[in-house]
Nucleic acid binder design. Structure first.
Lengths: 149, 149
DNA sequence: ATAGCTGCAAATGCTTTGCAAGGCC
DNA sequence: GGCCTTGCAAAGCATTTGCAGCTAT
């Protein structure tokens, strides 16, 4: 009967972020479990960020949260389906997730696997044609790949 | 002593494309073998195109060319390293290759795994900032994701 | 109470690699 | 002839899935 919860990086359910999370999860019929709460804390606790599954897994382990790697994958996918995360295809063979789901673009540092946002003012795309009949534009991904000079 | 070569989709070594290929491969110390020639025929024989490893493997098999899947992967990678192909990261877990290595952008039809070029006149990016110190821009990938309306 | 989770391990899918046999220059 | 290649099968990753037990509501 001991408390199974760890008093760590957790999102306050009353905060705007916490409310957005439980709202979205609730709407999708997903429970606010210890693991999801902890991962949400790491993801949304301090500004926007980019992560891969292993990174998040390693961080969870680092703060003493016991989460299975499979659960990390499942949670990332669920959060993505619910609109809390956006999946970015930048490297073949590894998925990156972005906590900022608004329209913005990225630098990707080849060799380091590092993603950075490109400030909105600094870039824009123009002249986008209409989508073919029966289709609509789901997202536009712009990735500027940087390599050692 | 029978001829091991099949009289099929092959690049004429005297054509501009054929010359470009043997030149590039030669410069990299790569031989013009039967398999590489056949795959080059499929890739560069009739205008630019997009392929995945299995698609190319299936096509090779379809024209009666016996090539191992591993060889297809190796050839795609070698061609990419030599600059004959460009690798596109659009789907996590599957690599796409483009025979057009010049700067241009893509539509990606989610659900069909289909890549299409966006005509250059129809889109452009502006206002790109300088790369951070010690870095240079290697490529800019723009992917417009289309989904069923 | 019960429908939904989690953890583990096994399965999957794409891609790479090691090694012996074969082919190109 | 010698070195590069190929083919096959096995290894390697990242990710997903199946199932028994646990848990939030």
């Amino acid at each position: 009967m001991e408390a199974p919860n760890r008093p760590n990086v957790r999102i306050c359910p009353a905060s705007p972020v916490g409310r957005a999370i439980s709202e979205r999860l609730g709407a999708a019929g997903l429970r606010l479990t210890r693991q999801r709460t902890a991962l949400a804390g790491l993801l949304f606790g301090d500004g926007h960020r980019h992560v891969t599954a292993d990174q998040l897994f390693a961080e969870a382990k680092a703060i003493g949260e016991e989460v299975a790697l499979a659960t990390v994958y499942n949670v990332l996918r669920q959060f993505t389906e619910v609109g809390l995360l956006r999946e970015l295809a930048v490297e073949p063979g590894r998925s990156h997730f972005d906590t900022d789901t608004s329209n913005h673009n990225h630098y990707f540092i080849e060799g380091k696997g590092l993603l950075l946002n490109i400030p909105d003012e600094e870039i824009y795309i123009a002249g986008l044609p209409d989508a073919p009949e029966g289709m609509r534009i789901g997202a536009i991904d712009v990735i500027v790949r940087l390599v050692e000079a």
